[in-house]
């Protein structure tokens, strides 16, 4: 332009048309590349947002009295127990000794770790064997048809 200080260039220059095409397609494509993730981002994902605070552990009536069931809570297993009186309790199913998964023993009405015979009572307290600490206890609420387990605040 009028104030340019560039020296005249040697050789043939790409035509104006070609440059405009390159620029136009580049801008168009890059805008698509920016808009596309944004739109995909705005569409909510299928997995509902209850990744680790609370989870539906079971449906009401799924568990018989005096039985237990392992469910996934975040990336760790948890144990839902239905007591003989029909009430629910939930615990972390990760044994505090060597991180094996514990289970509910219907015969002794206690929580048992098969790895080293660790025993917890139905309050999650370590009562026998190697476990050094109690199990983490979760809260259980029955909401309609769902048995919802959540971390204690």
């Amino acid at each position: 332009m009028e104030t340019s200080d560039r020296s005249p260039r040697e050789g043939p220059q790409p035509t104006r048309r070609l440059i405009n095409l390159m620029l136009g397609s580049g801008i168009l494509a890059s805008i698509v590349a920016f808009i596309y993730p944004a739109i995909r981002y705005i569409i909510p994902p299928l997995v509902s947002e209850s990744t680790s605070r609370s989870v539906v552990a079971a449906k009401v009536g799924e568990l018989k009295n005096n039985t237990g069931e392992i469910f996934k809570f975040g990336s760790k297993p948890a144990l839902l127990v239905r007591l003989t009186d029909g009430t629910y309790r939930a615990f972390s199913a990760v044994c505090t000794h060597l991180q094996c998964t514990v289970q509910y023993r219907e015969d002794i009405h206690e929580i048992w770790c098969a790895c080293h015979n660790g025993i917890y009572d139905l309050e999650g307290r370590n009562v026998s064997g190697p476990p050094p600490r109690p199990l983490e206890v979760f809260e259980v609420h029955v909401q309609g048809e769902d048995v919802v387990v959540s971390r204690k605040a």
Binding site: P37, R40, I43, P45, E49, T51
Partner: peptide, 20 residues
């Protein structure tokens, strides 16, 4: 209670959330 989990959700579940 939710801040960390919601950011984690954005990072892992929401498409392109990690990017944003």
């Amino acid at each position: 209670n939710d801040a960390f989990e919601s950011v984690q959700y954005v990072m892992t579940q929401v498409r392109f959330g990690w990017l944003i």
